[in-house]
Design a binder for these strands. Structure first.
Lengths: 282, 282
DNA sequence: CTGTTAGCGCGTTCAA
DNA sequence: TTGAACGCGCTAACAG
């Protein structure tokens, strides 16, 4: 329909009082005494007119907008969905709304997104950088929007400049691999995804480090690049070996082979993990 | 950080002109002549000050906010992720930002979400109703925010009141089942999910209708409720039959059994389908 | 102590 | 080209 929104003034008029009083009442301002009768009149009027205060007008006066944005490189990747979900829950508990935007891992797209978010004057941005993005972050820095970089490092900046939340991918892969080695495995596969993703490279390094430390030779054939399908094979597999499907969302699955038996698999441990080695972090 | 945002006034001051002129220039208003020299001065000033116009202030004056909201009942369900992704792409192409909010299929949560969206004065809402939500939509109707109900019907309202985008679940399941029957199958499984979801009930009805029409008795044991795991079994399965994993996101997979062989599976056809029967609409 | 007036913030737009 | 009013909620300051 698009009727006009009811304004404070409308409510004041109907309650035969001033906008100031209405504002005080509706915002429950303390140390401001209003007669019960008037308060009631105002509340009723607001109700009847379906008054909903505009966050726009509030925001103008330097008040927080109550909006946090998060930019995501891959919308339909469940890893990011979960991350966003977690963000949204915390934000909502604090009274914030979350806007999320997909950047498609495309720096140009990302810049567009950031610009529109700044136009919207969001209170803060949680930014999961697209791969190989570079100067986009100059923008947010010049403007000064509070921003946290999450999940992926930014290649061209030192860690001093921005606030980060990252996982130590190297260490996790290292420890995961070590765990398997300590269990007595020596044929350890590394299931991965696109090589250009920095966090995956880190994990590969961790994997290699653990192997080297145990004097297990690094065998490139054991590094399998996704998207992995069910039925994919490891080099020495017995014909009936079978892997869990990682779909197109495999990151690190440090798999171990027991020759002659089916393969098991285990992921890395991380903040989104469900118990040790039970989670695939892709 | 949080330096103040640069305002129109700042730009005007630096360019030694008025805010009006700056506004006109920056918005590229036609039929308004400005000397090239002044225009250049303004553009430069805006650049130097990192001016980004506030959508808030623009919005106050009745201008569109450039924000569309979509409420989603399940954030991490890839079906909805894809839907949101599609919405986001179209919206962005039109210059809109998309805000998405998770309602957790919880009517109370949904109401909170809707209220905050209205506060934010979003231009429009795409609403995927939570299951069993009822009076929440009175709100948006009273207020008059342009709204489209998507993907799920609202139980307590006739279709006349709101604008809908729905899939004909009955027909799709009916046709899918028929297709399998015409291929000569008679043992047709129906893999489904929570029974209270209306669209799944509709699909079950379509499935039953097709069976009945072909004089195939309806066998409740063939209706499998998810979450389905790989290795789940159909009643008459040979021991080596194997199903595709539907994870926790199975809706309708009309599976067919070829006794003595592994089972195949096919989904329903819908707007998000990738070709006939190639898509699982859960 | 209770309620009102008035002006701010910022981009838009009419009138001059 | 520009001054100034406007839209809407907030709030300091003032009046009753």
């Amino acid at each position: 329909m698009g009727k006009q929104y009811t304004t404070l003034k409308d409510v004041a008029r109907r309650a035969h009082t001033s906008t100031a009083t209405v504002s005080y009442i509706l915002n429950g301002v303390q140390d401001r005494y209003v007669s019960d009768e008037l308060r009631q009149r105002v509340l009723t009027a607001a109700q009847e007119l379906n008054y909903v205060k505009s966050a726009l007008a509030s925001g103008l006066k330097g008040k927080s907008r109550g909006v946090i944005a998060i930019t995501v490189p891959q919308f339909t990747n469940i890893f990011f969905s979960r991350l966003v979900l977690a963000v949204e829950q915390v934000a909502r508990a604090q009274g914030y709304v979350v806007t999320m935007c997909n950047t498609f891992d495309d720096p140009d797209r990302e810049r567009e997104v950031l610009e529109s978010l700044i136009q919207q004057r969001v209170d803060g941005i949680i930014l999961i950088p697209s791969e190989r993005s570079t100067q986009n972050y100059e923008l947010i820095r010049r403007i000064g929007v509070p921003t946290v970089i999450a999940e992926r490092p930014m290649l061209d900046y030192g860690y001093e400049i921005y606030d980060y939340i990252l996982i130590d991918n190297f260490d996790l892969a290292y420890r995961s691999t070590r765990y398997l080695i300590e269990k007595g495995h020596r044929n350890i596969a590394f299931l991965t995804w696109e090589a250009r993703v920095v966090s995956l490279q880190e994990r590969l390094r961790g994997y290699q480090a653990a192997l080297q430390e145990a004097d297990i030779p690094y065998r490139p054939e054991y590094v399998l690049q996704g998207p992995l399908q069910p039925g994919g094979r490891m080099p020495d597999d017995p014909p009936d070996a079978r892997y869990a499907s990682a779909g197109n969302r495999c990151g690190i699955w440090v798999s171990f082979l027991c020759p002659g038996r089916s393969a098991g698999a285990s992921g890395t441990r991380g903040p989104h993990s469900r118990g040790p080695f039970g989670f695939c972090h892709w």
